[in-house]
Write a protein that binds this DNA or RNA. Structure first.
Lengths: 101, 101
DNA sequence: CAAATATATCTATAATTCTCGATATATCAA
DNA sequence: TTGATATATCGAGAATTATAGATATATTTG
């Protein structure tokens, strides 16, 4: 973790929708309906379910998720035509360690 | 800690200069010269020393510090004509607890 | 292959943030 | 009180980010 990465993470976490997504992804089974094809949340939640819940446009949420994945906050796994996103707890922990004294 | 406050904190931590200030304030005696009037860093570091180190304008750094204090990241103490800023470890910890699963 | 579906990327405008100079306020020192 | 110094606030233009529609790409299905 360095200054640049930490500020990029801060940028992702400076928007209520994005922060809300991070919170929802703490408990996928609680916050999202079950996936119809995949029978689990092992790789997180598919982009369209996340989008539905935010009520924002597809392109906006896709951009959010892509950026959050680029800075490491989320991990993306593709299954067929679906993209699944889950929290990257390791990076989140590294970020919190960086800002704590 | 709630969604709104967490994103405000994220905003403060989304800028390299502000994040750098947070890092410097972890170790005032290491990163700043001793204060001439006050003989300690108990209340943190005075605004002008912080400004000097960033090489940015007085008004910009004053705005930064004021906003960081408003969202609780920093605690401000006034001694005479000087404003001293120190980290608010309690709030920082609350923020990290909020984002960690 | 063609159609349907999910996601990603491009482009442009709207909204917000950045940054500084100017100015105001507060305090100290003479 | 006057002048000097430290910090805060205001106002404006520059830079960045937000957001969505249009379009492109990728995958599945018939």
């Amino acid at each position: 973790m360095d200054l640049k990465l930490a500020t990029q993470i801060g940028k992702c976490l400076s928007n209520q929708t994005r922060m809300q997504i991070m919170e929802w992804l703490k408990e996928p089974e609680r916050n999202f309906p079950p996936h119809e094809t995949l029978k689990h949340f092992n790789d997180g939640v598919c982009a369209s379910y996340i989008q539905d819940k935010t009520k924002m446009s597809q392109s906006t949420i896709s951009t959010y998720l892509t950026n959050m994945e680029k800075c490491g906050l989320l991990v993306m796994t593709r299954h067929g035509k679906w993209s699944y996103f889950k929290r990257n707890e390791k990076l989140i922990k590294a970020y919190t360690k960086y800002i704590i004294k």
